[in-house]
């Protein structure tokens, strides 16, 4: 499904990034980094409008030729970014939402591990496992 999954700290440095074809890693780092401005913009502009549901899911941040970049922000200002291939037409908004939900739940459990210090790079085995699942299922689609 996803080709890149990333978690960004509230201070805007990466806590976690996983990409599928590893030779593209740097490119994805760049993609994730550039989309943070879009996240900031969405968060601040949306909160000014009146009929705003203030959802955690921010939707499509921007499409590039090959990829679609989606964003999500928690109440604790941690950002999740998921990148999927534009050619993957099977993934609709609902699927993306549910991926973010799972990611958020896994992040929350990970943060609750007493051996984790908030702000540290994420090294949790179970978090890794969930992210890999999100990426592996791409093979089947």
């Amino acid at each position: 499904m996803a080709v890149c999954v990333s978690v960004i700290a509230k201070e805007n440095y990466p806590l976690y990034i996983k990409t599928i074809p590893t030779e593209n890693e740097l490119k994805f780092h760049y993609t994730v980094h550039t989309c943070l401005d879009v996240v900031e913009e969405k968060v601040s502009s949306v909160s000014k409008s009146v009929n705003d549901l203030r959802e955690l899911y921010l939707g499509l941040l921007y499409p590039t030729e090959d990829y679609k970049v989606y964003g999500y922000v928690t109440n604790t200002k941690v950002k999740f970014v998921i990148v999927v291939e534009t050619s993957n037409t099977l993934l609709r908004d609902n699927e993306i939402r549910s991926m973010f939900r799972k990611l958020h739940n896994a992040y929350t459990d990970m943060l609750c591990n007493p051996f984790y210090t908030p702000g540290e790079t994420i090294k949790s085995r179970s978090f890794d496992k969930l992210v890999l699942q999100m990426m592996v299922s791409e093979v089947q689609s």
Binding site: D109, P114, F115
Partner: peptide, 8 residues
């Protein structure tokens, strides 16, 4: 007691 715990 061990919910969420991953032992390093």
């Amino acid at each position: 007691l061990t919910d969420f715990v991953e032992l390093p």
